[in-house]
Design a protein around this nucleic acid. Structure first.
Lengths: 198, 198, 198, 198
DNA sequence: GATGAATGAGGCTTCATTCAT
DNA sequence: CATGAATGAAGCCTCATTCAT
């Protein structure tokens, strides 16, 4: 990775962390630059605006989530229910660790950003829509192997979306109640949704 | 209602609308004052700060939601499944109408505010936590009449929370996909969750 | 005293206290009104402006100082040196008591107001100039009985002014060092100044 | 001096002049920025707040006073009485010149600021306390060479403080009477105070 | 005479962004 | 490519004051 690319990456990581720790608007460009150890003007050589940076953050976070949550959960040859459970366990573990470290239950970076920025930065909304679609693809791969033979692709899609929704709802609860355990609490509902196609 | 109370109410309503139409940070106090036809200084005689106003908005929105969604859905003597369905229908109808009028699918005001403000205005987070708890109470009243006799209160609570989560997930989807229909799409999952206790 | 006069007096007293406790600009008309238990609009029926109130306060404080400090010190038939000493003792006692009660060494209300307002409210400066002139009159009455026969009225006036200056300097020190004792510390210099005409 | 340092200095000088010409509260940050030919935001890159600026002004003014008044008066090898006189002459000349130029007798910047800000900006009070202590050191250096051999250090300190007080009282008079001559009027008292230790 | 309600103007501060080296 | 320095615009909030009853 070139020095440029490393700097760029550092800025994105810093911004991602700061945005997630509170919100897009509560973090200033100055703070991001300071956190990434770059001059503010330098930051603007990598990103044309704060909004642009937010879009890049959203993209980067998608890559992270796919890698660290979904690919992880699909790594071994295991059954669908186990995969589903793994997803929830990884996420919950992550959030519990953050809570331990920072005292905060931060919720889902995608949901957070989308709720705050959907209107004012449509591109962020679009990126997150794409992200959630990709999450749904993974859920489809969980559903299909165990689906009743007579079940339709449409049904599968609905369940996949319901599973995305279930997770998002859980993340919302986790943030509102400041209780990462809320994520695991939502696992049974996910399981029972999955069962409806079997 | 006294003149004071009317003015105060007008400010809250304006703020609620504006916050919901984009976000807390994207709306300035000046805009709220202008929208409510009061001088900025007048606004500050009713609310000690913008944050304080956000808290009042959160409280007011709770009252509205309970009145217009949950109480509405419980008005007639009907079955649990119908009540559940009504909740989703009222919400979906509302959001579709807003979309028609404004072009926007705004999502849930509680989820929106909570995601943006949970960290920086803890009192808003707290109010919304309370709100969702009260929503869960209504779901409990839907669950209990039809629950298996051997089902426990703990189970009921879990389902109630899952239903709140399902709705919140649906609202998130509705906002991210800009598609109020997402709310109705989530009804089957809600129904199937409810069935798990019957 | 009529009810009106009482209210007016209460406003002046409140304002005097508040101005003295910090400064003219650090106290708002709202605070004064609240402190005096009157509506802000009522306050404006008694005083045409905050500046006008400041002028009235300056006048009132003159009356108090003459009564409680100078007339007190001249009450009994005693010698000049004792009278001089009494002035310093009364003032010091006062300021020590305030310090005990509030933790603050507030300095001289005349010097404070004059330094802050001389430019922007010339009438306040003028009132305070008059006040200090009247103080000098009292010092003259201390000087004359003991002055060398060959000393001139001009000399007496100079000493009187020096005594006023000595007290003001002491009040400044008392405020800057937050130490009311500074007032008594200045007594020897006053005495030695007085001795120069004997 | 770096460009930064020059800008910073320019802001301090402008603020010092403006504060002195009326008062801290009567001057807005906008006016200071305009006077220093910088954007308001630039000012805030050099000073974290208006209060912070006031503290820096107080420090700068100390340096000026020590340089231009006390060090000047001590420059040549002369006697104590001459040095004392020089201090008063320099100050008086200064104030007369300002009065000629601006029509105002502004008084002492330290006393002015202290009286206005002692309560609300304790750090300003502290800086000015330090300043006056350093002035007293100079007076000590005037006292010691001519003090009676049997006089004590404590006495010397008292006289030094009395001289500071005498000057401050003179500055107060100069401002209240709008008459810089009041400064020179106070010289005889200073001299006679000095003589008390000889 | 008293007061609840309202307000224009302006306060301090911070923002995202750009210039010039 | 990096950065020290600068900035227009806008943020939230408070002020002294007045209106209308």
């Amino acid at each position: 990775m070139s020095k440029s690319a490393i700097t760029r990456q550092r800025i994105i990581e810093t911004a991602a962390t700061l945005f997630w720790s509170d919100s897009y608007h509560s973090v200033s460009v100055s703070e991001i630059a300071a956190g990434a150890n770059v001059n503010k003007a330098t930051l603007y050589q990598y990103f044309s605006s704060k909004q642009d940076l937010a879009v890049s953050v959203a993209k980067q976070q998608r890559a992270w989530a796919l890698d660290e949550i979904f690919d992880q959960s699909f790594r071994d040859e295991t059954g669908s229910f186990e995969r589903l459970e793994r997803i929830y366990r990884i996420v919950a573990k992550n959030h519990k660790s953050i809570k331990r470290r920072t005292g905060q239950s931060r919720g889902c970076p995608f949901v957070n950003s989308a709720m705050e920025l959907a209107v004012s930065i449509p591109e962020v909304r679009h990126e997150i829509e794409t992200t959630l679609k990709q999450f749904a693809e993974y859920y489809l791969k969980i559903i299909e192997p165990i689906a009743r033979p007579d079940s339709t692709r449409t049904e599968h899609h609905s369940i996949a979306k319901a599973l995305v929704g279930n997770m998002n709802g859980a993340m919302v609860a986790s943030k509102i109640e400041q209780r990462p355990q809320a994520i695991l609490d939502a696992l049974p509902a996910a399981v029972s949704l999955l069962k409806t196609v079997t």
